[in-house]
Design a protein around this nucleic acid. Structure first.
Length: 269
DNA sequence: GGCGTCAACGCGAAGC
DNA sequence: GCTTCGCGTTGACGCC
């Protein structure tokens, strides 16, 4: 399996250099492509960085869909939620009906709450609730208010609980993907190290052979990585001997020739 | 008791 | 200004 095969998994990986100007706060920008890559000329700018992202992370469609729905759906919202759980401080999208269901269906409320203790009770979703949530998550990883309401009604949970579940679920997905990406990059690193070792050996062997052109410092040579021909302006071609000498067959590289392992076929990964 | 999991919270940012 | 999101964190719970 080559690198291209691996890369057809929807992952976007970037090994490159980021600008130091991308400063505080920007790490929170939503799913923005933060991949700073080395361009085709091998031009490197900024500081070294390693970036990961998912190419398919465009989950904001549902968000835009039905914001206007929420007002109608919440017209029956209860005025207070204090009798549910004193640990629950934030509750925007609830209704009295849902409150009743929560009381009857979850362990969020217990007799202990009557004594005024402020302990946050842990809700454990049932298997069927989790299954339905998972099923829904497969279809769309974000919910619009209407979908949330419907799902909450179906699950006998508060909309807020459904919302939190989806948020946490997205976070878990992202974490898992990051771990996979990390593993993949580790393997890439190992493979490239191995290739580097191999190329160093080849270079040593060539040096031992000592052909004429190899007597020049290696840094002065440019070599096409694909055809492995020594590049340069070519010797002679007319003109004075001085010019010919100046136009050596082995020209100095104008800049560091960056070798991109992800675009070159000789990269092992 | 240590540790992992996960629901829930708080906050800042972004979009409308 | 409101809502939703991502992200970091907290706290309850279960397992060893």
């Amino acid at each position: 399996m080559g690198f291209n095969d691996i890369c057809n998994t929807g992952l976007v990986l970037g090994l490159g250099f980021s600008h130091s100007s991308s400063s505080t706060g920007e790490h929170k920008s939503k799913n923005t492509a933060q991949i700073k890559q080395i361009d085709h000329l091998g031009k490197i700018t900024g500081e070294p960085s390693l970036t990961l992202s998912l190419s398919g992370e465009t989950f904001d469609l549902a968000k835009k869909a039905a914001v206007s729905q929420i007002g109608d759906d919440l017209h029956s919202a209860a005025s207070s939620f204090s009798n549910i759980s004193s640990g629950v401080k934030r509750e925007r999208d609830f209704g009295s009906e849902e409150i009743e269901r929560v009381i009857s269906s979850s362990r969020i409320v217990s007799d202990e709450d009557d004594d005024g203790s402020n302990a946050r009770k842990k809700l454990r979703l049932t298997k069927s609730q989790s299954a339905l949530l998972e099923e829904s998550f497969k279809i769309h990883s974000t919910l619009n208010p209407k979908q949330k309401q419907e799902l909450a009604r179906e699950l006998k949970l508060r909309p807020r609980q459904v919302e939190v579940w989806f948020q946490n679920r997205r976070a878990r997905t992202k974490l898992k993907q990051t771990e996979l990406d990390c593993e993949f990059l580790k393997k890439c690193c190992e493979t490239l190290t191995e290739e580097n070792r191999r190329l160093q050996k080849e270079l040593q062997a060539l040096k031992l052979a000592q052909p004429l052109y190899m007597q020049l410092p290696a840094a002065t040579l440019t070599m096409c990585p694909s055809c492995e021909r020594i590049g340069g302006g070519g010797a002679g071609g007319g003109g004075s001997p001085e010019k010919a000498a100046a136009k050596s067959a082995f020209v100095m590289a104008p800049k560091a020739h960056f070798y991109n392992p992800f675009t070159n076929s000789s990269a092992a990964c």
